[in-house]
């Protein structure tokens, strides 16, 4: 069957590997990493635009390489083809293979930054998205020099301390090894990042099963939400994470 995958580029290597092995024929459009940083309404608008661009009659399904992603898929409406979305809070569920494993790990490790190949190599630090990012809009990513120029040195010192607290509760970097890495270079970069911040480093073996099942189907109700043509996604926040919006 022919399917269209619209995905965050955070999964670039993982989906390419899964597509290569898939029983289906998958066409893919990757969207820029970091949409969750521009706020839910803008993120939704960009994903909806990508869904609307799909010529539905050509495909058995449109697959989405996104999770709930801070409500960024809430309000997303399927076109004239069914839409399949993993039941996931965010990308870490897809890297770890199940929402249960993510929840279990997250509860035991609240102060963790996750790293994968996509987190390390994708996204742009000075492109269009970085200008739109909420952090930039809220004024919390300014440098010390910018703060000094705007608020004076005394306030800049105070602001640097306060704004630095944004990440001050993080204590660990967990590198998720997905089996798509060419060598140890990604792991080394994640390890160096942890060392430079004096954080703990840990490696977890990822599980690409959920990613593979998204491109292969069939889509088990417990792992995926299948959105019929014309229907809209809502947040559930319970064990299902996402659900169909009530019809009017």
């Amino acid at each position: 069957m022919r399917m269209k995958l619209i995905s965050c580029e955070i999964f670039y290597r993982e989906f390419c590997a899964a597509i290569a092995r898939s029983v289906n024929t998958i066409e893919v459009e990757f969207l820029t990493k970091g949409l969750h940083d521009v706020g839910a309404p803008d993120m939704l608008a960009r994903i909806q635009a990508a869904v609307d661009r799909v010529e539905g009659s050509r495909y058995h399904a449109v697959l989405l390489g996104y999770g709930l992603c801070n409500n960024g898929v809430v309000g997303l409406t399927a076109g004239d083809t069914q839409l399949v979305i993993p039941r996931a809070h965010d990308c870490i569920t897809l890297f770890l293979g199940s929402k249960e494993r993510y929840l279990d790990y997250f509860q035991g490790h609240p102060g963790v930054f996750f790293e994968t190949t996509g987190w390390l190599e994708r996204g742009e630090s000075d492109g269009e998205l970085s200008q739109l990012a909420l952090g930039k809009k809220l004024g919390i990513t300014a440098s010390f020099d910018e703060l000094t120029a705007r608020y004076g040195e005394d306030n800049a010192r105070y602001l640097q301390e306060e704004l630095g607290r944004l990440t001050s509760h993080y204590r660990q970097i967990t590198f998720i090894e997905m089996g798509v890495e060419p060598d140890l270079s990604f792991e080394s970069r994640a390890r160096e990042k942890a060392e430079s911040r004096a954080w703990k480093f840990e490696k977890q073996r990822g599980d690409s099963g959920l990613i593979q099942r998204l491109v292969d189907g069939p889509w088990d109700e417990s792992e995926f939400l299948v959105v019929p043509p014309g229907r809209t996604v809502a947040a559930d926040y319970n064990s299902g994470i996402i659900c169909l919006s009530a019809t009017e």
Binding site: K137, Y151, Y158, L159
Partner: peptide, 11 residues
């Protein structure tokens, strides 16, 4: 006003 302005005013 954005977060920095609010922080320095509160200070």
């Amino acid at each position: 006003f954005f977060i920095p302005e609010v922080l320095i005013a509160a200070r």
